[in-house]
Design a protein around this nucleic acid. Structure first.
Lengths: 198, 198
DNA sequence: GTCTATATTGCGATAGAC
DNA sequence: GTCTATCGCAATATAGAC
């Protein structure tokens, strides 16, 4: 009997679906409560009812748990760029792509992203990881343009500009507390960039 | 002979000037010979006739020795921006600043920068540090514009664009093996960016 | 510098799904 | 049975404290 109960308890924590999501939620909670640096992986795992080892099977390291949701963005970028008609102009492609990304990957996550931004600002290691993610995104865009036959300089210039638009727009979107849509802000930021360069 | 020995002994004494430069030269040599990862700090220090401890008094870590020459750039940016006339338009200020930086900080260092780029490409940790340096530069530009009274979004947009121009231009400059001046390439890259956004 | 706490990884065993 | 997600434990790496 006792053995059965123990087994069931173990089974619940062990096989309850959504281990990854539970780990993410636990991590977010703990980071909010005591900060990123002060939170240990064992603590996160314990709160999720899992072990340290399991944490590391889902996330490469402690920082990654904060960025996991955006891991697929480079692949999404590659797909969008590969599927676009050959006739699409580069900047048009960027604008369309940003609109799509805004609607499917960001809109609706504003509160979570705002929270993450505060955390990233609080820790040097997280800031660094954030930079790497941005660089990875730029690299995906650059490769997409190279695959479309653009020369190296043009591809790099467009990719960097695309990432600038993303990061500035998101910062603006998170700063404002009105209900504006991110895609609208992207349009506005692009207009402002055009105005600067006109 | 005796005089030579004395000179050499003097060269390794702790108050001999140029310790920092000798460490940098030794590090560059060793990185070229055996790669960044395979080179240890004690090796670098030994080749410079100094101790490991001295290395770390001059550089925060092994990576920093590669970027030390650019450490003053953010301060230089701040100075240039603070001294510019209030009437200067932002993009004009950026173009002037990039021209100045190109001439005073980059022109003439092409071979060294090319070599560094190869090293940075070979090591993930160095790539990361490079991203941090870029971010620091962008931050300096952004703060400069904030100090000049621009709103946060405009300052961020201009700062990111400025760093894009720098990095794309330098990449182009290093890729080409003709004798073109960096400042000319910056102008060309800016024209290309304007064309994309027109 | 030494030393401790934590992050991170490897490997074999086990539980539950199919 | 086979397969995958986990566990449990131990070993290494490393940052930060002393």
């Amino acid at each position: 009997m006792t053995r059965h109960v123990i087994t069931r308890l173990a089974a619940v924590s062990r096989w309850e679906p959504g281990a990854r999501e539970r780990l993410q939620a636990a991590a977010l909670d703990l980071f909010a409560e005591q900060g990123f640096a002060a939170t240990t992986v064992p603590e996160i795992a314990a709160r999720a009812g899992l072990t340290t080892r399991t944490f590391f099977r889902h996330f490469a390291d402690k920082r990654e748990v904060l960025f996991a949701d955006d891991a697929e963005m480079p692949a999404m970028v590659a797909k969008l760029m590969a599927e676009a008609p050959d006739t699409a102009e580069p900047m048009e492609l960027i604008v369309q792509g940003l609109r799509t990304m805004a609607e499917t990957r960001f809109e609706g996550r504003r509160a979570a992203l705002c929270h993450r931004r505060d955390l990233v600002r609080s820790d040097e290691g997280l800031r660094e990881r954030d930079l790497r993610k941005r660089a990875a995104l730029a690299e995906a865009v650059r490769e997409g343009f190279l695959a479309r036959g653009l020369d190296a300089t043009r591809a790099a210039l467009l990719a960097e500009t695309c990432v600038t638009l993303v990061s500035v727009s998101i910062a603006e979107w998170l700063d404002r507390d009105d209900g504006r849509r991110l895609s609208g802000i992207v349009d506005e930021v692009l207009d402002r960039l055009r105005a600067e360069l006109a």
